[in-house]
Design a protein around this nucleic acid. Structure first.
Lengths: 208, 208
DNA sequence: ATAAACCTAACGAGTGTTCAGTATATACGA
DNA sequence: TCGTATATACTGAACACTCGTTAGGTTTAT
């Protein structure tokens, strides 16, 4: 760190700025709904400049999504780590996931876009590099919660109970029985945890 | 069938044919991913002909989605109707919904596209004309199942447990603990029903 | 001098949409 | 029964625009 060129952090890397500014665009409008001109305008560059940093639109999209997911992944894993009984960790995770989905709508939408993606290669990359780590942690937790039940199905159900609720956010307002406090992530988290705790606790003592 | 003009069923109405053939296209590639040329080619017409039947692409999309949903709506309501205890009807519905999601991938994808739609007017129309009826039936069932719990949240959880599982269909294969039989709608239905039955039954006797 | 980082300008292909015209079938008066 | 008017259901060709991408030139820092 002495004789080396001192340029260290001369200014934020343009590449990262492109990724961070294009991610919300892709989240809101999807791959087809965002043009290279849109991205360039958002960053304050010309379209041609984007091709200096990325080979093509596909690569830009993939990198932007991956980057966005890796940020959230750290936060999610932090919720699951730490000490406490399995049930305490579950409640912490469900509450944290719900808060994240309620707060960061862009991230939620990005998840939805990825689930709709028909590009098998891209979906495989994102599944393995991004979803998998999150899922493994919840999967292991599910094993601890109820060793008799299919941990894969149970882990997916935990994600589904939280994520689907916020997926339907805009649509839910038109449904009967809707009250504003249901949009509160803490309320949803309590509902989900009660459902799971009783559903699993009842099975604990059984032969099955 | 005697004196009437014998042309009866001269041929299927073009308009309906456009709707039925464009729906799978929109399901697979989304609004932005399907061009009027794509639709025209699928039906065997020129693009201009589409504008004889629909004012613009937006209208064509809206009608195609609405049409597709109304077909499924009848099937879903049939599952909930009929006699039996609330629990029997729930099991019938969950099994039927799971089978539908596993069978008709296009319909599942259409649901996902609608949930991602940012056009508020369009989402409002589809929510009220299509989702609402399905939801009301499940909402009422939720009231019967457990009057002490928030029926709105519970109904949404029932949908979420089933739909999210199939939403992640392609991605789930990369996750740990995956086994082929989990793709069987009957297996998923049993998992969901057990979770719900125990979760709710345990709450039944409580003060709460 | 050299390389990184960016711009201007354009290419060809694809987009939603429109307009003038054309078969085909039915309805009507002679 | 015939010809003609009329509405229906389309076609062919184009318009103005946007798309992803690229070639070649320019600035800037080392």
């Amino acid at each position: 760190m002495s004789s080396q060129t001192v340029k260290a952090i001369p200014r934020r890397k343009t590449r990262e700025e492109i990724l961070e500014l294009s991610a919300p665009l892709f989240a809101r409008h999807g791959y087809d709904g965002v043009s290279m001109r849109d991205v360039a305008a958002a960053v304050g560059l010309t379209q041609a400049a984007l091709y200096y940093h990325f080979s093509d639109k596909d690569q830009l999209y993939l990198d932007a999504v991956t980057c966005e997911f890796q940020e959230k992944e750290a936060a999610l894993k932090a919720m699951l780590a730490g000490n406490g009984t399995p049930w305490e960790r579950l409640e912490r995770f469900v509450a944290g996931l719900a808060r994240m989905m309620a707060t960061d709508k862009d991230f939620l939408r990005l998840v939805q876009w990825v689930l709709l993606d028909t590009d098998e290669a891209r979906q495989g990359i994102l599944a393995k590099e991004v979803f998998r780590d999150m899922f493994v942690a919840v999967h292991d937790l599910a094993c601890e919660l109820d060793p008799h039940r299919d941990a894969h199905l149970l882990a997916m159900s935990i994600f589904g109970l939280v994520i689907f609720h916020f997926q339907t956010g805009a649509t839910r307002k038109f449904m009967p029985g809707h009250r504003p406090h249901q949009d509160d992530p803490a309320v949803l988290a309590r509902h989900v945890c009660e459902l799971l705790r009783r559903g699993l606790a009842a099975a604990d003592g059984e032969a099955r």
